[in-house]
């Protein structure tokens, strides 16, 4: 861990874009390598010396990050062709040149930064919350939950809205308007929570129209792409079944 590799550098090839409307272009940077360095640390190095391999001083690369320990979802980008968090992408595990691109399923803001507002809008659409009456202390504990159920819910609750599943899903594109696996997982989560259940019918309705669960093409890429290993395939299958039942029995409720 302490061996000195001072002279070694790593080559980065970064797809850049100055504004949402501008054409993308490529820049290359050589970054001094450090043991256990991640992609974020390399981008930070570029800020300190924003000179590309052509020797030209350029604007430092713009990207998004916050927690740097793969729990906030901010720094998702395409690293060597795969959507993942830049903070947990270790340089030593990556082939050179390390190629960085912005997620392609979202509008680019600048360089590696994208606008994922659509995911948050969709969370609103499916009412991803429990409808608590009040924040006041009701002097009551919530319902009891067996540890096994907690473990399942916790898995779904770890979704960081990073967008990797959207990137991997062939059905997410402008034409389909597919809401995507991440938001659907939240439907499943809140529909299984006792205080989320009152809104369960509305959540199912919200994913039954265009862009809803029916757009899922069962490619199963999402589960492989999820950095938190959410059981997305299972979630999508379950919701598919529930919405079918609802569609079939819909007239009973009218």
């Amino acid at each position: 861990m302490s061996e000195k590799t001072a002279a070694a550098t790593v080559l980065f090839r970064i797809k850049r874009q100055d504004t949402p409307a501008a054409a993308p272009y490529w820049d290359e940077f050589r970054v001094p390598s450090r043991p256990f360095m991640n992609v974020v640390a390399a981008l930070m190095e570029i800020q300190k010396n924003p000179v590309n391999t052509a020797g030209r001083r350029v604007a430092p690369v713009v990207w998004d990050c916050n927690c740097l320990e793969e729990v906030c979802g901010a720094c998702a980008m395409i690293v060597n062709g795969r959507a993942r968090q830049a903070c947990s992408a270790l340089v030593r595990d990556l082939a050179e040149p390390i190629v960085l691109e912005a997620l392609s399923k979202f509008p680019v803001v600048r360089d590696l930064m994208v606008d994922r507002a659509v995911m948050f809008e969709n969370l609103k659409k499916v009412k991803a919350w429990t409808a608590v009456d009040t924040t006041s202390d009701t002097a009551e504990a919530g319902p009891r939950v067996p540890p096994r159920v907690q473990a399942l819910n916790y898995q779904l609750a770890r979704c960081m809205t990073c967008g990797c599943c959207m990137e991997a899903c062939p059905q997410v594109n402008r034409r389909s308007g597919f809401i995507g696996p991440a938001v659907l997982a939240q439907v499943k989560l809140f529909n299984s929570h006792p205080l989320g259940q009152p809104l369960a019918p509305e959540r199912l309705e919200a994913i039954m129209g265009p862009g809803g669960i029916a757009e899922c093409g069962k490619a199963q890429n999402c589960q492989k792409a999820c950095p938190k290993q959410l059981p997305l395939t299972q979630v999508l299958a379950d919701l598919g079944r529930q919405t079918s039942v609802r569609a079939l029995t819909g007239w009973l409720r009218r």
């Binding site: 002097a139 504990a141 009891r144 540890p147 205080l195």
Partner: peptide, 21 residues
């Protein structure tokens, strides 16, 4: 304690004892 109960109601999957508390 009231804050934990609130967040429990808000859906936080707190770890549970075998009895579910």
């Amino acid at each position: 304690p009231g804050i934990i109960h609130l967040f429990d109601r808000m859906g936080v999957p707190f770890n549970r004892t075998p009895e579910g508390v």
